[in-house]
Design a protein around this nucleic acid. Structure first.
Lengths: 254, 254
DNA sequence: CCCAATTTGTTCGTATGTATA
DNA sequence: TTATACATACGAACAAATTGG
């Protein structure tokens, strides 16, 4: 980050009635979004940022507070403020909502079952806000928890957001798939919207999960969003809930 | 609220390493919990509270900020700060997570199907932290959304928390059941933990929801908690998800 | 092991703006 | 209009955590 005043420009005190700290927040978001502060990197110190924006330290902190609440920034006392990384931890606590019925929670072991370049179908196109028939990647994963096949994921990505994605790069990623989006394609998933329902397992899911076809399974339809609520991933998860539950964690201040 | 300094006593600046604003927060919680500030009532103004606690207004606001984030207090500019009420709105956005697949959201129409005083079973006793066999109330509700029977709720309450509860009082409540807990029994539900899974509908649920027995339905097991994470309600919801979804709303700052 | 520099965390106080009754 | 209450913005000082010498 070379040019402070270009990345964090001084802010006029009257920006359309919006409170100053919101203007600062938007400005910070733009900087993060644009890649000026790569994920995992520390931002300039609060004092520096406040000076650069031309606002008080309290106002700057107010803006950062909200971004921290949204898991976009992470503060570490004595170290600095960082753009949140999609490490395994963040994945687990923010985006992965299946755990064993006794409460045991762990990272899934992922098996890539299929990978293909396809023309996108209606349902997926609607979720990703592209036109039906547009090029897309579609993959099927089988997720094992505590050694048992529990989840079948079908993931759809618009091809234009993930140029150069190959089965090999998927297989060889060292961490979570959201970490791959972030580091390889500059796409940070900030939020996911999920809807759940119970359905009878179709043949594919039943086979992958070792269930009889027609068994009741939990179906999750997730749209993952990046900055500005822009959809970047659509995922249908089929969960064998005989020994596992779907749990939305509440992350509240204690 | 007569005696300010008794309800909001001056706080020592060193309380076991805990930050001052957390001590203030705990003190506020105790006051709310004890009923010194009845639900729906305005608290004393921030300036008054800060003076009573002997802390700065910024510190007091920090404490209130957290309670607002937890939906325990509600601020209204120009009016005051209020203990959150279990109105229909709050119920809908915080505790009711089923909506039609097209996103239409509305308050359910509730039909009380059965009400009984029972000895509590193992599963319910565990959730409510009482002994199996202790006296309890158990009721079955059928919930209609947009005119269709969508949810079957079986609710269990420890009898000692709801002394004097009768079928009549349940039927004649004017608002949500959580509002009844709050106004009639002084129990404010602050939080709920839910686990979802897909199961085959049992006979009772199938009948109430107009489904064939064995149809895949969503089963929610919810423990509702009051202050201090004390469990007060256990509920098993069975949801017909053919036209409705389970959705956990995310309430984030924009 | 301690020290110094850096950074966030907490606390204080004040002034002004905005919404409500 | 006025009084009250929360919302925003400013600035300063010290505490606590981390890192590196």
């Amino acid at each position: 980050m070379h040019d402070l005043s270009a990345t964090f420009p001084s802010i006029a005190h009257d920006s359309g009635g919006l409170p100053l700290y919101r203007v600062v927040k938007r400005s910070l978001l733009r900087a993060i979004e644009s890649g000026a502060c790569p994920a995992g990197e520390a931002l300039p110190s609060e004092a520096t940022l406040a000076a650069s924006f031309g606002v008080s330290i309290g106002t700057l902190r107010h803006a950062v507070d909200e971004l921290v609440a949204e898991h976009i920034l992470v503060r570490r006392q004595g170290l600095g403020t960082f753009v949140a990384l999609h490490t395994e931890d963040r994945f687990l606590f923010q985006f992965f909502h299946v755990e064993r019925s006794d409460g045991l929670r762990g990272a899934p072991q992922v098996e890539l079952v299929s990978f293909a370049r396809v023309r996108i179908e209606e349902e997926e196109a609607l979720a990703l806000q592209v036109r039906p028939g547009d090029p897309a990647f579609q993959m099927d994963n089988r997720l094992l928890l505590q050694g048992r096949a529990v989840i079948h994921d079908r993931i759809t990505l618009a091809a234009n957001n993930f140029k150069g994605l190959t089965e090999r790069r998927l297989r060889e990623r060292p961490s979570t798939i959201y970490h791959l989006y972030q580091t390889e394609f500059g796409i940070t998933v900030t939020q996911a919207r999920e809807r759940a329902r119970a359905v009878a397992a179709d043949r594919t899911s039943a086979r992958l999960l070792g269930l009889p076809a027609g068994a009741p399974v939990l179906q999750l339809r997730r749209t993952a969003l990046t900055f500005g609520d822009r959809p970047v991933e659509y995922r249908v998860s089929t969960v064998n809930t005989t020994q596992h539950d779907y749990v939305q964690l509440l992350s509240r201040p204690v």
